[in-house]
């Protein structure tokens, strides 16, 4: 094996792993500080005002002990941290289940939603961006750009509400929310039902994501069409089609990869809002609930997992860059 050629990549991966570990520690500390400093009283949030009033002092003390109110924060964090390192993410106070299994279930739900949105917004945004960049200044560019700017300046939750109004309230062809029909046994939920419930949240996320990717791709495309090598290709009598196929697409691929993987974080952020509006039981919604009820173990778990996911996306983008771009791939071999 020719280790020399890959040593650069290996070094990069090792460096990245060290980076992610320190990043995750920082993220968990920050989330913990925030959730500890939050004015939400987890016990009160858990049993509600009425429950608080009716509860005996002994029971209240038991609950407070369960929620760890009286343990010093540093000790609590340390307990969580040592557990986490050994693979135990603790139990969610809210769901009364191990955090790992809560995250697993929610993550799978969100994953379907986010992957659909990610692929759709990536493909369509890429396509629209290229068309707009190629026909810069023409009507089609103006239409695409106008649409993207409009969407980009639209709040996600607002768009979600509008879609619900149109498709669920007026047309009544799609459900208002949740991921399965109400009042149906879990075993009887068909795939079609799941897809139906997925359409609106995925559509909202995609529509929002497209705008961003379109605008970025358009800018890059305009830059590329102004490059000297495009001019030279024209001077050599190449047809527009051949220039686009052989030079423009090839060169836009690199920024597109970066953009696509960087957009993971935005889709993730968007999914929090979308899941909230559609009551879609995903990671985003779980994060909001955990935050509002002071469920520190769950919140920390979700924060760490999502940070890892976003970081991983960027890492993949950088590695792909090295594979696609000959200047990086072959650069080291010719130094």
């Amino acid at each position: 094996m020719d280790i020399g050629r890959y040593s650069g990549i290996l070094k990069y991966v090792v460096k990245s792993i060290i980076k992610i570990i320190s990043l995750l520690i920082a993220v968990s500390i920050l989330s913990f500080v925030l959730v500890s400093a939050s004015p939400v009283d987890p016990v009160r949030a858990y049993i509600g005002e009425v429950g608080m009033a009716n509860m005996s002092v002994e029971n209240l003390a038991k609950l407070e002990a369960y929620f760890g109110i009286n343990t010093p924060p540093i000790e609590r964090y340390w307990n969580w941290f040592t557990g986490f390192v050994q693979g135990d993410m603790g139990s969610s106070l809210l769901y009364r289940q191990p955090v790992a299994s809560v995250i697993h279930v929610k993550f799978m739900n969100s994953m379907v939603l986010m992957t659909t949105a990610w692929i759709f917004s990536g493909l369509l945004g890429f396509l629209f961006g290229i068309i707009a960049g190629l026909y810069r200044g023409r009507w089609i560019d103006k239409a695409i750009k106008g649409y993207s700017l409009l969407i980009a300046s639209m709040p996600t939750f607002w768009l979600a509400l509008v879609l619900v109004m149109i498709f669920s309230v007026w047309l009544q062809i799609l459900p208002i929310g949740l991921s399965v029909p109400i009042g149906v046994n879990a075993a009887e939920v068909s795939i079609l039902d799941s897809i139906k419930h997925l359409i609106l949240p995925a559509l909202t996320l995609s529509v929002i994501g497209i705008a961003n990717i379109t605008l970025h791709t358009r800018e890059k495309m305009i830059d590329i069409m102004g490059e000297d090598y495009i001019l030279f290709a024209k001077a050599r009598g190449k047809s527009n089609l051949s220039i686009i196929r052989h030079h423009a697409l090839r060169n836009i691929l690199l920024p597109a990869i970066t953009l696509q993987f960087a957009s993971i974080s935005e889709i993730f952020g968007g999914s929090v809002l979308v899941e909230q509006v559609f009551s879609y039981p995903g990671l985003g919604k779980a994060a909001v609930s955990a935050g509002l009820s002071g469920d520190a173990p769950l919140l920390l778990g979700i924060a760490v997992i999502s940070a890892a996911l976003v970081f991983f996306g960027n890492l993949v983008a950088n590695l792909l860059y090295g594979i696609v771009d000959p200047r990086i791939r072959r650069g080291s071999a010719y130094e």
Binding site: D228, Y229, R250, N251, L254
Partner: peptide
């Protein structure tokens, strides 16, 4: 043209 910039880098 004057330089290698006129070739497609990829």
């Amino acid at each position: 043209p004057q330089s290698v910039n006129y070739l497609d880098p990829l």
